[in-house]
Simulated scan of single mutants.
Amino acid sequence: MDNIDLSPAALLRLDTPAAVIDTVRMQRNIQRMQARMDALGVRFRPHAKTSKCTPVVQAQLQAGARGITVSTIKEAAHFFADGIDDILYGVGMVPSKLPQALALRRRGCDLKIVTDSVASAQAIAAFGAEHGEAFEVWIEIDTDGHRSGIRADEAALIEVGRILHEGGARLGGVMTHAGSSYDLDTPEALAAMAEQERAGCVTAAQRLREAGLPCPVVSVGSTPTALSARHLEGVTEVRAGVYVFFDLVMRNVGVCATDDVALSVLATVIGHQPEKGWAIVDAGWMAMSRDRGTQKQKHDCGYGQVCAVDGTVIPGYVLSGANQEHGILAREGSPDTGIAARFPVGTLLRILPNHACATGAQFPAYQALAEDGQIATWSRFHGW
């Protein structure tokens, strides 16, 4: 590889490691997803947990998204303070967080909360009655056995619905997330999972309605299923998150190409172990995260795919290992004994992540690289 600088000059002035957003790719990803949702005739509610960043979420809303999904009450409070009021807190509600949810609703936030159990539903109804608040609650449906939720055919579904409806809460609908779609990698399998997700959630909604309970919203979604669904009959909205940046796991799943990945970590070569074929960079797992999501896929990229500073993939080179602040860059297969000459100390590289959500979470801010080469700093937030 010739050491030719093809990068925007602004990248050369950044301290490393740094999380870089290619805003051209990001906007392309946003437009692609929104166009697909429009074509399928459903509302789109992006998941803000991927970026936890107001400029990113504003770009999604400007493209046509209506409302957002969050994974923490802190996210809900942050985005509400920034003017977004239609928010789904998409994690099962526990009693200890109800006062925070109440405070947000009392300030005018149209916050929806989620339950998937009788105990949680009883706590929500009791707390709401005590404080004169009719929480809007969605029931989480398990459509793939991947994580949480009530199966569409369980008796508990109707019981939870009645507890909420008769206890003074507002039964807003049902929601599901087919997380097992991340384990697939063919169009046929992804389309089948998207249909399983749709059918399961629609069935749950029908059961509630047949029991005389309201169910206005039917919300499904994951990035792979959103991009693979052939139709969404009976669905009112879709949620997806990682599509805004994409990552190597999504590339391996087959729903994006490598040049769709909009998030990378800018790193500097700081040393070598030539006899091992290693170059050492200043981006270890504290920068990339410990997520090894590609390890169980057909193409394992270690801790990330190595690219030149201009974003061009350097074929065959990955971050094969990581310590806290040190990343090990190596060639796949046979060691590159000329690696020190190929990547001299001081060389800037960009590493594409396995999991954009996890890698983004390692940084307090993104460096947003525009088409004209200018860089803006976009803050993101941490914690719960």
Rank of each mutant, 00 (worst) to 15 (best):
G234T: 12
P353H: 02
Q295E: 14
V202H: 08
V137W: 02
M93G: 08
A35V: 02
T258Y: 12
G108W: 04
T176P: 07
G149P: 11
C301L: 08
R331C: 14
D310V: 04
L349G: 05
R198Y: 03
G67T: 07
E133G: 01
V91P: 01
T23S: 15
Q27G: 05
F363D: 09
Q273D: 14
V253P: 05
H78D: 13
N252G: 07
T16L: 06
A156P: 00
H165G: 00
I4E: 12
A340I: 00
E275W: 01
G327C: 01
E159G: 00
G67A: 03
G304C: 08
S228M: 03
A39T: 14
N354I: 10
D2V: 06
A205H: 07
R106G: 03
V24H: 07
Y366W: 07
L232E: 13
R151P: 00
P99Q: 12
K52L: 02
A103T: 11
V261I: 15
G327S: 06
R292G: 09
L6W: 08
D300Q: 02
E136I: 10
M286L: 07
V306C: 11
K49N: 11
P46L: 05
V242M: 06
D185T: 07
A65E: 08
R151C: 03
G212H: 04
L14E: 14
S228T: 09
V269P: 11
T225Q: 04
T312Y: 02
F246V: 00
V281P: 05
S51G: 13
D291L: 00
E159V: 04
S219Q: 12
A365D: 11
M1L: 04
R32N: 12
M1A: 07
C215T: 08
A376R: 11
L61I: 13
I141G: 11
P17G: 06
C109I: 04
P55Y: 13
Q34E: 10
K52S: 05
Y366H: 04
N354P: 08
S289Q: 01
I87L: 13
D260T: 02
Y303C: 01
Y366D: 05
G254R: 05
P17S: 07
A178Q: 09
D5L: 13
H47Q: 04
D185N: 14
G316F: 06
C53N: 15
P95H: 08
Y182N: 13
V91K: 15
L164Y: 05
P55G: 12
Q31D: 15
G132E: 09
L349M: 12
D142G: 02
R66P: 00
N29I: 05
F80M: 04
D15T: 13
G149T: 07
I163N: 08
R198T: 09
V70F: 06
Q58A: 15
H326G: 00
Q122V: 05
F44Y: 15
Y317R: 09
G108I: 04
A63E: 10
D260R: 02
L157K: 03
A123M: 12
I280D: 09
D110V: 00
A240S: 11
T236P: 09
C201M: 00
A189K: 15
I280W: 14
E133F: 00
V265K: 06
G311I: 05
Q374D: 06
A308D: 14
T23E: 14
G241D: 10
C256I: 10
P46R: 10
V309L: 12
G173A: 06
Y317D: 07
R105F: 01
T176W: 10
H231E: 15
